[in-house]
Simulated scan of single mutants.
Amino acid sequence: MFLANLRGRSTAFATALALGAAVLTAWGGESRADSNSLVLYTSTPTAQVDFFVKAFEKETGIKTEIITGGTGDLLNRVKAEADRPQGDVLWGGSSTTGGSQPELFVPYTPPESAKINAAFADPKGYNAPFDAFTMVIVYNKDLVPEAEAPKSWADLADPKWQGKVRFANPVSSSSSYAALVNWKLIGDWDFVAKLAKNFIIDHSSSAPFTAVGQGEAELGVAYEEGAYRYLESGKVGIVYPSDGVVILPGGLFLIKDGPNAENAKKFADFLLQPEQEQALVENFPGRRPSSDAVKLPETMPASSTLHVLDYPTSEAEQNQKDWLAKWQEIMIDAR
């Protein structure tokens, strides 16, 4: 009886050890990389995410969990989870999104990176840009005659536009932060302050172009793809400001110590394939590919036809916190 009980207790103890090991494996880190899944954090438009995730799953068989949110919110989530990462890829924002906190990500260079426009390449290797974007002025044609529409960023500072220009808060929008840097390049903080006097601030990147497209606002500062969503309606016009635009690579970052590290690489490899870049411009008007091998649609001007300013990537990343604090001071003064 004693031997039987001892054997029973030993068996139970071994079982408990096995269960404990299983739990540690499930939460511990590297062993999770062998799973057939991927956790994707993304601020990219839903239709685009669904389109490419479906194609990725079909090609690889890897099941993808999609978690959406604003770029700034998702970046904060990655930071909060740094001790035990739950996501594998952060897809959205711009190069400054991950560049501002590189300790949260790992460098990776997909095989197709050689086809990326040299201006979009990340010299530090953290960003694997699938697309690129610029900021534009969008106006409602029913509310603003074409002849009176702003032709430059400086035109937005005209007092007649006070309270008529929608702009997403750069504290929560990486695309708006790119616009802020764009304006700083043109006329430094004095120029930014003049523009701010006419702005109505939104907390979502989609709010400015949506308000203009639906006739709720005269003007908006919007990212290129968002402005194009309403182009076919004939209700909006798009202006590429004559005093200069910056064109930034979109953000695609692999999260450090993510649970499915190998699958994260496969996702980056997949998106940068020429076939996917071409599918981007054919299915999502206004999305600018990062690859030079893709033919642009007729409605999208090539970067060579625009007044393109050199974006100070390192400076914008290193000073992001201070520049956003300065922006908030300007907005308080503007009120």
Rank of each mutant, 00 (worst) to 15 (best):
E103H: 13
S152M: 11
S37Y: 11
A121S: 12
I186E: 10
V294L: 07
S172G: 03
L309I: 07
G28M: 13
D158Q: 11
V53I: 10
V144M: 12
K235C: 00
G70N: 01
G250C: 02
T97L: 00
Y228D: 06
V136D: 10
G250R: 02
A21K: 08
E81M: 04
E59K: 15
V236K: 03
D292H: 07
V136Q: 10
W183Y: 08
L75P: 00
L38Q: 10
G69T: 07
N198G: 02
N263A: 06
P123Y: 02
V294C: 07
P274V: 08
E65I: 10
Y311V: 01
P249R: 04
G28Q: 14
S100Y: 04
A26G: 09
P45E: 11
D142G: 13
F191P: 08
D88A: 05
W27G: 12
V106F: 04
G125Y: 05
A222H: 09
F167D: 01
T46Y: 12
P85N: 09
L24W: 11
R32A: 15
N283E: 10
L271P: 01
W189C: 00
A302M: 07
R335T: 08
E65P: 00
K164I: 06
D310A: 14
F270M: 10
D202A: 14
I247G: 00
L74P: 05
A211P: 00
F209I: 02
K151D: 11
Q278W: 03
A157V: 02
E216Y: 07
A325K: 14
D88M: 05
F253H: 06
I67R: 15
V49L: 05
A157D: 07
A33I: 06
F167Q: 06
A132V: 07
Q214E: 15
D122E: 03
T60P: 09
R7E: 10
G70C: 03
G87H: 05
D269G: 04
W91A: 02
Y223G: 08
L252D: 09
R77N: 07
T134P: 01
L185Q: 14
I186S: 03
Y108G: 02
V192E: 07
A121L: 15
A47L: 12
N5G: 10
Y177L: 03
A149K: 09
W161Q: 06
A193I: 00
D243S: 05
W153A: 08
G20D: 00
F105M: 02
L280Q: 05
D88H: 07
D333P: 01
E57N: 11
N117T: 03
L75R: 11
R84K: 15
S43R: 05
L24K: 12
V212A: 11
V89P: 04
L185D: 05
E57L: 07
A168G: 07
A217M: 11
K151R: 14
T11I: 14
L252R: 02
L219T: 08
A293F: 12
N283L: 01
A132I: 00
A21T: 12
D88N: 12
K58S: 15
E224V: 06
G220I: 04
S314A: 14
K197H: 03
F270I: 04
K197N: 05
D257F: 02
W183Q: 09
I137Y: 11
G213C: 01
L90G: 03
